[in-house]
Amino acid sequence: MADHAHAELHSEQGALRHEHSGRSIDPVIKVTDLAWLEFEKPDLARAEAFATDFGFQVASRDADTLRLRGTFAGPPCLVIRRGPMSRFVGPSFFAAERGDLTRLASATGAAVRRLDRDEPGEVVALRDPSGFAVRVVHGVPELPALPEQRPLTLNTGATARRRNEPQRPPREPSRVQRLGHVVLETTVFRRALDWYLDTLGMITSDFLFLPGHRDRGPTMAFLRCDRGGVPADHHTVAMHLGPSVQYVHSAYQVTDLDAIAAGGEYLEERGYHRTWGIGRHIQGSQLFDYWHDPDRLMVEHFADGDLFDSSVEPGWAPMSASGLAQWGPPVTKEFLGTQPSPKLLREVFHALRDDNELDPGRLLGLMKAMNS
C-alpha cells in the first residue's frame, strides 16, 4: 500500500507458512446466507417503535413474537420474542438444499425438524462452541419484495447524469433492504472459528492479529459464505476474541450514503443515540453508521460493501482501533466496548480464571490494540 495513515492496516497477502488457511478442507455443508437473527426483549411495543424508526417493516406481530423484514424478497430477517430480558439468541442460516439438513444432522447428532407447525420449512438446531443457538433452515416461505428507497442520481466529476433536477432526499427512515452480518465476541475464538468453517463451510475474508503476536494466530476473523463463483458479502459472521461471550452488533443494508445520512438525522431527531459514524470501514469497505436501540443493543446501517467470490484468499492485518475505518470520526470507546465499568471488570476477572483462549498476554495485547 502507499505510505499514508492506513499503511499496513490491510494486506491482501495470504497466510504465512503454518498459519490458518481460513477455510476447511472438507466442510459438512456450505450455508448460502444468513436467514434471520433471533432476539428476546421484554417490551415488544418499544422494540417495534425503534425498528420502524430504524427502517424495518413489520412482517407480523402477535402477543409474543414480532417479525421484522427488509424490502428485499425473503423471510423476515429479525425475529423478536417476548422474554424476561433483552438478549441475542442466535443466527439462522440458509441451507442450499434439503439434503444439506440431513447431512448436517447426521454429522452433528442433531435432528431435522419442522420449523413451524403451521408453515413449511425445516430446521437443524445446533450450538456453536461459544454457546450461541445456531439454526440451519431450508424450504422457508419468501415474502414478496416491497418498494425500494430510490438511489439518488449523482453527478460525478465530468459525468453529469442529473440536469435541471435538484436533489431533495426526504427526511425519513433509512429503508432496510436486508440483513447483512452479525458480529460476536467469544472467549474461545479458535474453536468457534473452526466450527463455522468445518460445520457450515464458511470461508475467511480477513484475519486480524494482535500487533507483535502474529505467531499466536489471529484474534478476529471476517467470515463469508462460500458460493463458489457467485460473490457473497465480505462478511456474514465476524467474531473476535474478548473477555466475554456476547453479541456485538448486527448490520442491515440500505440504499446508499444519502439513505444512511438522512435516516441518521431522522433517528437523531427522535432521541436515539448514535454510537459511531458515519464512515467507511477498511475490512469490508462498507459505509457505516452505528446506533444503540433502547435496550443498548447495537445495530448498523451499511451500504456499498465488498463482494467476494471463493477465489479471494484471506487478508492479514494487525488489529487496531485506528484500523477500523478509512475515514470518519474517531472510533468511540462505546463502540469498542472498552468503557471502564464493574461489568467489564467482572468479565475480565472471570475470563482470566476460566479455561479459554484469553490469557494476560492476550488481554494486554487487546487493550493496546484498542487504544492504538
Score class of each variant (00 low, 15 high):
R17V: 13
S60I: 12
L366M: 11
Q177V: 07
G271M: 00
L78A: 12
R346A: 14
F56W: 09
V136N: 01
R46D: 15
S320D: 10
R214K: 11
A59H: 09
D128A: 01
E97Q: 11
P294Q: 08
D289F: 05
I80P: 03
D215P: 00
R103Y: 11
T332A: 04
N371D: 06
S372K: 07
M367A: 15
L352Q: 05
R227D: 15
L345R: 10
V248D: 11
A59Q: 13
D43P: 04
V28T: 03
G305E: 08
L78K: 10
H138D: 08
A59W: 14
S11T: 10
M298Q: 10
F88W: 05
Q177Y: 14
F94N: 06
G242F: 12
R103V: 12
K30W: 02
L143E: 08
R17L: 13
T159W: 06
P166H: 01
G121I: 02
R274N: 08
T71K: 13
E12V: 15
R117A: 11
L257P: 14
R67Y: 06
G212R: 05
D33K: 15
R270F: 13
T52M: 07
G55A: 02
A303R: 02
V312F: 11
P147E: 00
E334G: 12
P342E: 13
W276K: 04
V58F: 01
R190N: 03
